[in-house]
Every structure is written in C-alpha cells, then in structure tokens.
Design a protein around this nucleic acid. Structure first.
Lengths: 337, 337
DNA sequence: CCGCATGATGCAATCGATTGCAAATCGCGC
DNA sequence: GCGCGATTTGCAATCGATTGCATCATGCGG
C-alpha cells in the first residue's frame, strides 16, 4: 500500500480511504487510486485490516467427532447442512471456516474466537456435549448450535421440532393401521430422545400401547440399520412398522430387510427422518420427516449474527413436515409389485 | 500480551517466546508464563501473529456454482469430498475455509491468497472453467483442482481415472451380456467426456458397436435421471443397460424406471459412478465405479502442501474400482424377486 | 579478581493496514 | 483582499504480535 501511495503521489491514509469506500475522499482521487490498484493488481491485506479494525467476517462451523473414534464426516444430513451454511454465509457476506475437533476438546474451539480467527461459532453434530457448550457460552463465546433445546441451557440452539417430528412419523404409521411400531435410534442423544417422546405421545393420543421391547438403540450409521434388521427379525413377536431416526438408518434397514425377503411396506412399513436428497428416489420412495437444511442453516446464521449484533433471540424450533411417498402405503402410481 | 508481560514482570518478547516454544527462554520462566497465561485464559491473537510472521495455516476450498444459477451445494459426492478435506486438513494442522463463488468470478478467488486469507486453493466442482483456472495459476496462486487432466493445463489436478472408470463400468455391462448400453451424463464436462471415451473404448475392445443414439446428455441432478428414464423408454429400440455418470443420476433413473414397472436389473442393468454412501443400500444395491473421497482428499491436500513447500508434483490420477452389487446381475443372496 | 563464553532477557523496529485529529486547500461572500 | 466553512488530505498513533540485535547476568577458567 505504501508503494501504491508513493506512485499515486498521496499518503497511505488516502489510499486506504479510497479503497475502503470511505466517504471523505475526492471522487476523482478515488477513481485514480482504484485504477492504479487494479493495474498493479494490488488488494488490501485482510490480515492487517482485520488486526487494525478489529472486524472479522468469518464464522467457524465446528463439527465435533466422537472422542477417540476419529470417524470421518459422512453423515448425509450434516453434510447437507454444511453445504447450506456455506451458501447462507456467503450470501450474508461472511466467510466460513470449517473446523473438525474432538468432542472432548470442544472448549478449545473457544480459542477460535478468542484468538480472533472467527467472530462466532456454529456447532453442528450429534453430541452429548451439553455441559461443554454451556461452558463455552459462559465464557462469552458467541455460539449457536444445531439441536435440541435442553434444560438449563445457556447457549441458544436452532433445531427442528423433534417432539413433533416423532409424533408425526409415529401417528402416520399408526393411522395406516400398524399396531407394533419399532423405534430405532440412539436415545442418549437429546434430539433422538425427543423424537422418542413424540413416538410415545402419538401412541398415547391414538390409544395404542407402546411396547418397550420395540425400542432399539442403534447409532446413526448404515451398520445400525443392518443390525436393527437382524434384531427386529429375531424378535419373538414381530413388528409391522419401523420409525427410524434417520433416512440413512431407514434405507440400510430396508436394504437388509429385502435381502431377507421381507417386503416394505407390505410386511413392514418404514418412516425415516431428515428427507435427504436421495430419500425420494429410494425404492420404495421413503416416507420421512423433513427438516429443511436450507431453513435450518438460515436460522442458525441469522441467530448467530443477531447475537453478534448484540441482541439475544431465543432458541428456535423449526417446524417439521411429514412427506408421504411409498414406504408406508404404496402409492398406486409407483408401486412396482 | 502486554498485560501478561507486566504481571509476569518480563517483557512481551519473553512472553512471545515462551508461548511460541522458542528455545531461547529459561524453562522455568516459560512454565511460569504458561501457567499465568492459562489462569488469565489468555491466548495469542492469531491475526496479529499471522500479520507479523507471515505464516498462514489456512487453505481455501472453493466450490463454484454455475454462473447465474445460484443452485445450492447438494451434490453427494462433492459434499463427501468436502467432509474428507476437512478431516485431512485438520489432521495436517491446517484450517479450512469453505468458499462458494460464482464460477464466472473464479479469478476473484485469487484474492483469497493475495489478501492473505489463505495460503492456497483447492477448487472442487463440476465446471467448465479450464481457462479461468489457468489464469489463476499463471498469477502464481498455489492451486490444486479436482478433476480431469487437460491439454495445456498450467495448474495441477487430482482426479480419478475417468477413462478407466468409464471402461470398467461399460465392460462390466457388456460382459454380463448386455448389447445396447446407454450413456447418461453431460459430456461438456471434461470428466464426463473422459468417461464417455472409456465407454467407447470398452465397446471397441469387446467388439460391440456403440449406438450414438444411446448417448443422453443430462445434468448431474436427480431430475436428470428422471428425464433420462423418459427418453430411454421412448426410444424406438430400447436399451438393455445404462451407464450413469453418477450414483444420484443412477438412483433417480432406477426410481423412475420402477415407477414405469421396468425391472432393474432384469430388463435394464444399471451402473453408477462415485460409490456414495447410500449406493450400497439402494435396492437393488447399486453397481458402481468407486472413487474414494478419502484418497482424493488426501491427494489434493498433499499436492497443495507440496506446492506450498516449493516442489511441483505432477497431476495425479487415482485408480478407480468397480463395485459389483446387484444392479447388473442380481446377487443370489440379495435378490428379492 | 578479571575476562569471557553462554544463556536469558529486553529494546525497538516491523508486519500492513485504519482512523482521530490537525492541517491544507478551495470557494465564496462581503 | 480577508475570513470562514466545507472538503480533502496528511501525520502519526495504533492494532497485537514477532524477531534481530544489544544488553545483562551467570558461571567458570586462568
């Protein structure tokens, strides 16, 4: 910048003001400087600018992995959410830092803000780190998380209405005449627990008893779906429907069932969760509870930006929507049997 | 840092040296300063450090969107690649900036490096921006791209061996006895064109004539698969196999075919490309050409870091692998019919 | 007891911008 | 021709570290 100033015959102050769009510069000086900058292809060093002005337009999206297990980031729903976050942040004029960290080291993510790398944090993922997030929030780190709203929460979250989602899915199955609905998911995760509560609520509302033996704990991985199929088929009294807590789980389950020549939806109806892109093209096309990644990403970003601007909006629950396609009741136009 | 120095009774030089692990500090002074820093929970401002030292440990991953069309980032393969890139970069001690930009503005991505936001670029995505990438590379921007190797390329790419992939997929279909194999993909994309060349090569090798009428141009979107199904079924002389250039395309196609009561693989065999996570759980389980996102991400990062270190390794072609499951020949244990 | 090698620390310049305040310039009316 | 307000521009301090070089303390041999 000093060079540029010398060549242009002005001071660096003027160059700085010209290039940052400061109003107190002579318009023609600005034009001259801009042209010169372009011809030298010079552009402002953003590190120095950030240091001096204290303004930071980058947000860190933190995706913890389970402590120890360095499993890679593959979850279809979260990947989609990351894609949408990138889009939304770009649109809002922010940069996105994508950060993987051990869930046990989550408090260390606070450094991203304290060291000035990011203005705030969006935490994404399946985790049990309620307390750690609270600690971060207590340190004053601007923070928004995707997930359930919990008791004693000092940070603010955005998530879909899991209770409603669980209720919708389960009611859909019960209303189609199913009576023994299995639940697959890891209820140690708050979001899943809430879906399970929805599952129970639907049973209560429709006066159908829920059999605790049909609650299967499985991780959010394809292997969980395969395992669930084994366990369901080994049950003394078989189920006639399954509510799986993610589409990936549901698809892996259906795949394992059809390998065992169990027909879906005729013998066992299945509802998933997330509405990932491929759910519509599965066969049978998957009935699922949609949580919109676009809406979720936008809500997360807006909430964080609001926090950075000083306001403190409450946690938000995004509505969920049941998408009926063909894994509960075969649609006449699609059924291949 | 000045405060910390005052409290510790030393100069900021010493604090800096203690905290960055400089050897010329008394070990016990260092311990004292580290303890103090921890108790005040102070940590080095990385913006200032980066400014002064000129060291930048962040890499920008750039994902262009088609000019004008602000379509959101949903491609399963690229999302998976992004996830793996995040993992690999973290492991190598780098931060990852995820950047969306209009493909027409790609040269602007050079600013990320010139302004000091990132040390180098990884460009990901389906694009026609050969010339623009060349321009970036000519400006001296450290750059690696995912994709095909092209004539006159001044930047270096990492990609899977599309020619081999196309050949593997097509030969697999022809060897299963199919004689009319359709090709679905957008050959204006270099990677797809190479897969098409592989498709032709396989026909030549196996002495089967390739019918140009079976080459359908479709974009990499589920809608492309649906459209392809319509067009294939409307053909005067039907095909008995399809090589689809992505798994998403293949799944959407199969979904549309079964809605029309065309059975896969009995009537039409299908091979996809990518081996996305859900391909194995589709029904029928999808035969596909695997490109490993982990290997791809690692190769991209290593190539870029090598470039940053001054060496210039050549472009790399990663091997592809055919995964046979059940969409060409039904596997006995899995067939549900 | 002195000189010197060695290791630890401090001084001050520096990275590349931004910005409050002062100074310079300009135009215009009296 | 002078004074004054409004614009433009420049000076210099500042953001928070890093680092070459000088200085200081220490221990040890002579």
């Amino acid at each position: 910048m000093a060079d540029l100033a010398r060549i242009a015959g002005v001071s660096t102050s003027t160059v700085s003001r010209a290039l940052t769009g400061h109003p107190r510069v002579n318009p023609e000086t600005r034009l001259r400087i801009e042209a010169l900058a372009r011809s030298l292809d010079y552009s402002i060093n953003s590190t120095a600018a950030a240091l001096r002005s204290g303004i930071n337009q980058t947000i860190a999206v933190v995706v913890p992995y389970e402590p120890g297990a360095r499993q890679s980031l593959t979850d279809a729903f979260f990947l989609g959410l990351i894609g949408s976050l990138a889009d939304v942040l770009t649109e809002r004029g922010y940069q996105m830092l994508l950060v993987r960290t051990d869930a046990g080291e989550l408090p260390g993510a606070g450094l991203l803000v304290r060291t000035g790398k990011a203005a705030g944090l969006v935490v994404i993922g399946q985790w049990h780190q309620h307390a750690q997030l609270n600690a971060l929030a207590a340190q004053g780190i601007p923070l928004r998380g995707w997930g359930a709203r919990l008791e004693g929460q000092r940070y603010c979250t955005v998530g879909s209405d899991n209770l409603q989602g669980g209720r919708l899915a389960t009611a859909h199955l019960l209303r189609s005449g199913r009576r023994r609905v299995a639940f697959i998911g890891d209820v140690s995760l708050p979001e899943v627990e809430q879906r399970y509560q929805g599952y129970l609520a639907a049973h209560r509302t429709l006066h159908v008893p829920a059999d605790p033996a049909l609650k299967l704990t499985e991780p959010f991985l394809p292997a969980g779906g395969l395992d669930a199929a084994q366990r369901l088929l080994a049950l003394p009294s078989r189920c006639d429907a399954v509510f799986a807590c993610s589409d990936v789980l549901a698809m892996a389950l259906i795949s394992a069932l059809s390998a065992q020549r169990v027909r879906v939806p005729e013998e066992i109806a299945v509802v998933g969760y997330d509405d990932v892109q491929l759910a519509a093209y599965f066969s049978p096309p998957l009935d699922t509870v949609r949580q919109s990644v676009q809406a979720g990403a936008a809500a997360l970003v807006d909430a964080l930006l609001a926090r950075l601007a000083g306001t403190t909006p409450p946690s938000r629950l995004l509505p969920t929507e049941l998408i009926a396609r063909g894994s509960v009741r075969a649609e006449p136009s699609r059924s291949a049997h």
